[in-house]
């Protein structure tokens, strides 16, 4: 029994020593037991949308806001025109990422086209920047307006 108790102490010592190696200590503190992954805090936020926002970040929240606006505006069969990330950066927009059409569809259930897509003429709304860091959803009234937006987007490839 004494030997087993000694081995138990060795086990504890091994675990303590292992998680005192700087790399593993850091991993344990930041990733496994880090505050952003705290099970007790997270389990208080069980709302599905909130969990998605926590995981996908600010961009996801903005996309959800657009969905609400489109529903309020009762836009029939919306197809959103997406700019490039370079365009958004030039418009001083921070922390907002333009996702690819597949992910946009997963996030919103709304179809979208990239500014260089062959189906670009289907777009009836567009994500634009106001030039001062704000992201806006703009309704496209006609073909001329669509072409003007696309040519604006193409400046920032």
């Amino acid at each position: 029994m004494h030997f087993k108790i000694n081995l138990t102490l060795v086990s504890v010592l091994l675990i303590v020593l292992f998680f005192n190696i700087p790399f593993y200590k850091n991993w344990l503190n930041t990733n496994l037991l880090g505050p952003s992954f705290d099970i007790f805090t997270l389990s208080k936020q069980m709302d599905l949308e909130q969990r998605k926002v926590n995981r996908f970040g600010y961009s996801y929240a903005v996309y959800q806001d657009f969905v609400k606006k489109l529903k309020q505006a009762k836009v029939a069969d919306p197809v959103i025109l997406l700019p490039s990330d370079a365009y958004m950066k030039a418009g001083k927009v921070k922390d907002f990422l333009i996702v690819e059409p597949a992910i946009f569809y997963y996030f919103t259930g709304i179809k979208c086209v990239l500014y260089d897509s062959p189906n670009v003429e289907k777009a009836n709304c567009s994500i634009v920047s106001d030039g001062n860091g704000k992201v806006l959803l703009r309704k496209i009234a006609n073909k001329v307006e669509l072409e003007s937006i696309i040519s604006d987007f193409k400046k920032y490839k």
Binding site: F37, N54, R55, F56, A102, I103, Y106
Partner: peptide, 22 residues
């Protein structure tokens, strides 16, 4: 930790959001 995160977080990698999960 693994099972809680598996349950709690939505699928995240780009490859599944633009593929299997979608």
């Amino acid at each position: 930790i693994s099972s809680f995160r598996c349950f709690y977080f939505p699928p995240t990698p780009r490859d599944v959001l633009a593929g299997a999960e979608l």
